[in-house]
Amino acid sequence: MKNTSYIGISLVILIFGIIFIPKIVDRVSNNDVVKSDRLNVNKATPRPDEMLYIEQYGEKKKVPEFSFVNQEGDTITNEDYLGKVYVIEFFFTTCPSICPVMNRNLVEIQDEFKGEKDFGIASFTIDPAHDTPEVLKQYAENYGVTNPNWHFLTGDRERVYEMANTGFGIFADEDETVPGGFAHSGLFALVDKEGYIRSRADKFGNPIIYYRGHVERNKSITEGGEEPQINILIEDINNLL
């Protein structure tokens, strides 16, 4: 009788464990908790080169609506980029640190897609008081910008910062303590032809979200331990095109 009771108790514990132990397994990657359903065998882990959507509150994240003036004095909106795959950056022309690296990287990307009418770049200045269309045009010429879909955009300061910090989650702010007077992350966002923000998966199957635009393409690794991502960005642009 005792053996029968032990067997019965063991079965109850086993069933309880299967039903009530949480299905969600937490892993930690880059200080972020990664959640995966260990019982959902039909949900395959995305490949590292698979293009994912960025989701927020269960919805695919799109580029927020915008309207700014470019280096030619023309008004450019998010609708002008529909039908194009494009990269977004936040920068300023007098930046003495990461912006030159970012824009050299973007010129290399531009050259990779020379003649591709469905590829573009949107560069939003975080110093619109200084970066007028005239200043932006000279800056573009200095960097050898030739892609007609690469717009250097300036406009209302509050709207620019709202775009960066809320619309994209790419940090930008005024900061007198840093070189140039502005702090920003140096990240690139990739947008598909329908206006959705996209990225590839990391090794855990989660979207990397943004690409390190401030790390030179030919660097193997930086002193801070960051690897360049321009080559994978080029691959992902190709995938979306």
Rank of each mutant, 00 (worst) to 15 (best):
M1E: 08
K2E: 12
I7C: 04
G8P: 05
G8S: 11
G8I: 13
G8F: 12
I9T: 10
S10M: 06
L11M: 15
F16G: 07
G17V: 01
F20W: 12
I21E: 07
D26I: 13
V28Y: 07
D32T: 08
K35W: 11
N40D: 15
N42F: 15
K43F: 01
T45I: 15
R47H: 12
E50P: 08
M51K: 12
L52A: 06
I54M: 01
I54G: 00
Q56Y: 11
Q56W: 08
Y57E: 15
Y57V: 13
E59M: 11
K61Q: 05
K61R: 07
V63M: 10
P64K: 13
E65N: 13
V69D: 02
Q71K: 01
D74I: 14
T77D: 12
N78M: 03
E79P: 10
D80T: 06
L82I: 10
K84Q: 10
K84G: 01
Y86W: 02
I88A: 06
E89P: 04
T94E: 09
N103S: 13
L106N: 09
D111H: 11
D111L: 11
E112L: 04
E112S: 13
K114I: 12
D118C: 11
F119E: 00
F124E: 01
T125Q: 09
I126M: 07
P128G: 02
P128I: 04
A129H: 05
E134K: 13
V135P: 06
K137A: 15
K137R: 14
E141N: 14
G144K: 01
G144M: 04
V145F: 09
V145N: 05
P148H: 08
T154V: 10
T154W: 05
G155A: 09
D156P: 09
R157V: 04
R157K: 14
E158N: 15
R159K: 14
R159E: 15
Y161K: 02
E162D: 14
A164H: 02
G167D: 00
F168L: 11
F168M: 10
G169P: 03
F171L: 14
D173I: 07
D173R: 11
E176M: 08
T177P: 04
T177D: 11
V178G: 04
V178Q: 04
V178F: 05
V178S: 05
P179Q: 15
A183T: 14
H184Y: 02
G186E: 03
L187H: 06
F188A: 07
A189C: 07
V191T: 00
D192V: 02
K193C: 06
K193L: 07
G195E: 06
R198A: 01
S199D: 05
R200M: 12
R200V: 13
A201V: 10
D202V: 01
F204K: 10
F204T: 09
G205K: 13
G205E: 08
I209F: 11
I209T: 13
Y210Q: 05
Y211M: 09
Y211K: 10
Y211T: 10
R212E: 00
R212L: 00
H214S: 05
N218E: 15
S220I: 12
T222L: 01
N231Q: 14
I234H: 03
I237S: 00
N238L: 09
L240V: 11
